[in-house]
Amino acid sequence: MDFLNNYIFYIGAFGLIFIGLYILLTRKNLIKLIIGLSIVDTGVNLLIICMGYLKNGTAPIFSRKGLNPETMVDPTPQALVLTSIVIGVAVLAMALSLAIRLYQHYGTLDMRKIKEQKW
């Protein structure tokens, strides 16, 4: 139980990162690769949030009187993750538009078959 308490979020974050990297390394379909990228992104975001967590902390919002500032979680990682999520969706949109164009040119999304240029 103690192990779970300490490591479960890290396991989740790095599990996502590793599964995403595995997709990126082994799969060849462009849309699959893009899904892998978005999974890696989610994992990294979870990791960053974990870095600022305080046990039994509260959200960093003074919505009512009497909240103790000492038990608030670190707000900086949350601000970073907001940025990172938006960057992720921007990259994803670009990648999907490239995939659509690629499909129109080649009729396939398999990167093994798309070898007009040498790597």
Partner: peptide, 21 residues
């Protein structure tokens, strides 16, 4: 990761934001 404990006390920068924000 083993050097970075989970749920540790906040950082100087984060505490500054919470106090002075």
């Amino acid at each position: 990761i083993s050097e970075i404990p989970f749920g540790k006390p906040g950082t100087a920068v984060g505490n500054y934001y919470i106090e002075k924000g």
